[in-house]
Simulated assay, not measured.
Amino acid sequence: MKSIQATLIGVAIASALVLTAQAEAPEDMAARILQAQDEQSLLATWDNWHPEATHRVVLKYGPGQQDDSFSYRISDSADAEETDFTKAFEGYSETARSELQITARSEEDTRYVTAVSQVDYEWQGYAGKMRQTDEFVFETYLGGTVIRSLTTTYDYR
């Protein structure tokens, strides 16, 4: 009987904490996800994603070259193996990154957040600049705000 009472008290306290905690703004959530640099930081963002969330990646290379594009479900990424894409970018490194420029807008129950940054990089003996644009779509799920989709565009033009 005592374990049931302790459980009920624990559930009541947890519920009160959840109800009084302020929800993180989508802009802050997007910035935190983009600033995650290691596996532990990324794992800390796992509950910010809708279970069916997708990530689309677009690579724009320049005039005369066709864009590359692929997408995957975020939940499938935990089981992903090294892809041709990751192999193709071996030796690629960022040398500098600008501050994120974040804008947000809402339409009905959907929130859109766009984050843009300029990146200096080195790859195969070449130093260049790239513009990265991350477009998040947030929606309400189980009473909270989660990421429904993310489109990341790497623009090397």
Rank of each mutant, 00 (worst) to 15 (best):
residue 48 N to W: 04
residue 11 V to P: 04
residue 17 L to K: 05
residue 62 G to S: 07
residue 50 H to D: 02
residue 27 E to T: 13
residue 45 T to N: 14
residue 24 E to G: 05
residue 14 A to E: 10
residue 49 W to C: 00
residue 28 D to E: 12
residue 28 D to I: 11
residue 24 E to A: 14
residue 22 Q to T: 09
residue 60 K to Q: 10
residue 96 A to D: 04
residue 83 T to S: 15
residue 73 R to L: 02
residue 58 V to E: 10
residue 18 V to H: 06
residue 76 D to I: 03
residue 89 F to W: 14
residue 46 W to S: 14
residue 68 D to C: 11
residue 14 A to L: 12
residue 10 G to W: 05
residue 16 A to K: 04
residue 37 Q to S: 09
residue 34 L to P: 05
residue 28 D to Q: 14
residue 85 F to I: 13
residue 53 A to N: 00
residue 35 Q to C: 03
residue 16 A to Y: 01
residue 66 Q to W: 10
residue 64 G to P: 00
residue 75 S to T: 09
residue 84 D to A: 13
residue 21 A to R: 03
residue 73 R to F: 07
residue 90 E to R: 10
residue 76 D to S: 10
residue 51 P to I: 01
residue 54 T to V: 03
residue 93 S to H: 14
residue 24 E to R: 08
residue 28 D to H: 12
residue 38 D to W: 11
residue 54 T to G: 07
residue 41 S to I: 02
residue 84 D to P: 08
residue 75 S to Q: 09
residue 59 L to C: 00
residue 57 V to H: 08
residue 85 F to K: 05
residue 55 H to N: 07
residue 10 G to K: 03
residue 92 Y to H: 09
residue 31 A to R: 08
residue 27 E to S: 14
residue 20 T to N: 12
residue 33 I to R: 02
residue 80 A to F: 11
residue 76 D to M: 02
residue 31 A to K: 08
residue 44 A to P: 00
residue 72 Y to A: 11
residue 46 W to L: 03
residue 44 A to G: 06
residue 82 E to H: 04
residue 62 G to L: 07
residue 40 Q to H: 03
residue 73 R to M: 06
residue 87 K to L: 15
residue 14 A to W: 00
residue 86 T to R: 11
residue 10 G to I: 02
residue 54 T to N: 03
residue 85 F to V: 13
residue 73 R to A: 13
residue 98 S to I: 06
residue 66 Q to G: 01
residue 90 E to W: 05
residue 56 R to G: 09
residue 43 L to Q: 15
residue 84 D to V: 06
residue 64 G to I: 07
residue 73 R to D: 05
residue 85 F to W: 09
residue 47 D to S: 12
residue 81 E to Y: 03
residue 75 S to N: 14
residue 76 D to V: 03
residue 8 L to Y: 08
residue 83 T to A: 04
residue 30 A to N: 06
residue 34 L to D: 10
residue 84 D to Q: 09
residue 23 A to E: 03
residue 13 I to Q: 01
residue 21 A to P: 00
residue 12 A to W: 01
residue 19 L to K: 07
residue 13 I to L: 10
residue 26 P to C: 07
residue 68 D to F: 14
residue 71 S to K: 08
residue 75 S to P: 06
residue 91 G to N: 08
residue 70 F to W: 13
residue 10 G to P: 12
residue 49 W to S: 01
residue 17 L to T: 05
residue 90 E to K: 10
residue 53 A to P: 02
residue 50 H to N: 02
residue 75 S to R: 13
residue 73 R to C: 01
residue 43 L to K: 14
residue 13 I to W: 01
residue 72 Y to H: 13
residue 28 D to V: 13
